[in-house]
Amino acid sequence: MMDKWYRTVGKHGDVVMSTRIRLARNLEHRPFPRFLSKEQRQEIVEAVKDAAAAISGLPLHFVDVATLPERERLALVERHLISFELANAPEGSGLLLSEDERVSVMINEEDHVRIQVMSAGLDLEGAYALADQVDSALGEKLHFAYDERLGFLTACPTNLGTGMRASLMLHLPALEEQGAIQTLENTVSKLGLTIRGSYGEGTRPHGALYQMSNQVTLGISEKAAIENLNGIAVQIMKQEISMRQRLFTQPEFEDHAWRSLGVLQTARILTYEEALRFLSTVRIAAAGGVLPSPTIETVTALMSDIQPGCLMTAAGEDMPPQIRDRRRAAMVRAALGRAE
C-alpha cells in the first residue's frame, strides 16, 4: 500500500508539517451548489466523475461521503481531505481521492469543484504543479466559469481570481512559548496572508500548530502568491529554529522533554489535547537532538493517528471518549516503546 502523505515528513518538516493548495472552480451557467436541487447536484457529481476518469496517470476513486459512518467522515476532516461543510453535506456531493490521498476533489461543497493537493513539509511549487495539472485536465472537459476581469468565478467573492488558497501547517512551539504569535499575526496580515490555529479561531491551538495561507486571490498570480507565502514561511522557520536553539540550551527544557516522553510512554488515559501537547514538545526535542528517540516520523504519524475520528476509523468502531482515551494511550505506548 502506498504511504499516506500525512504519515510522512517532508522538506523542512521540523517546522512545516504540510503544504496544501486548493483551487475553487465552478461550471459555467449553473447556479452555485447551495442553490441547486438534489437532482441538479447529482448531475454535477456525474459530470465531474466523468471528467476525472479521463485524467491519465492519476486514478481518482469516488467516495460517497453521505453514506460513510460519522467516524470516517470525521477522519477525513481531521486529515484535511474534506471540509467540515462537506462532511455534513446533503446528498448530491462527493469526493474524489487519489490512492496516496494527496489529491482530493470535493464536489458540490461551496463551489462545484474544489481541487486540493497536499504535500508533507514545505512543497508549495510541487503541490501547485500537481493541482494545476488536475485543474487543466478537468477544465478541458468541464468548461469552468471564467471572466477576463475577475478570473475564475467562485461562490464567495473572497476566492475570485485564481481561486487559489495556498496553506502551510506550521509547528511553532518555540515562537508560541515566546508569546510571539500575536506579533506574527499582525505582521503577516499586512502582507496579504493570514495565520491562525489549526482548528477554528480564538482559542490557543493544540500542539502549537498554525495554518498560514494567502488571503488575496484577485490581481496576484498563483506564482507570485506562492513565492510570497514561501518567502515569509522561510523567515518564520528561521525565527522558530533560532528560538528552539535557545530553548535547547536550558536544562529546564531537557527535563520537560524527558518528562513529556515519560508521560506518553506510561500513561493509561490520554485525551487528544494532552497527547498533542506532549507530542509537540517531544517532536521538537527529537528534531533538535535533545531526545535520542523517537524519530520525528514516528511523532508526526502519531499526531495524525491519535485524532478522535482517525482513532475510531482505525479501530472500525465508535467509542465513547473514555474508551477512546484509553485506546489512544495504548496506541502511543505501542509506538513510543519504553523509556531507556
Binding site: L153, G161, T162, V216, G219, S221, E222
Partner: peptide, 30 residues
C-alpha cells in the same frame, strides 16, 4: 452570489465590494 453569471450581470454593482476584499479588480494568473 447566485451563479457565475451574476458576476457579469451585476459587475458594476459588485466591483466596489470586490475591490474592498482584494484591493484589486483585475485578474492576474492562470
Amino acid at each position: 452570489v447566485g451563479c457565475p453569471d451574476c458576476y457579469t450581470t451585476f459587475y458594476e454593482q459588485l466591483r466596489p465590494s470586490v475591490q474592498r476584499i482584494h484591493g484589486k479588480t483585475v485578474h492576474a494568473g492562470k
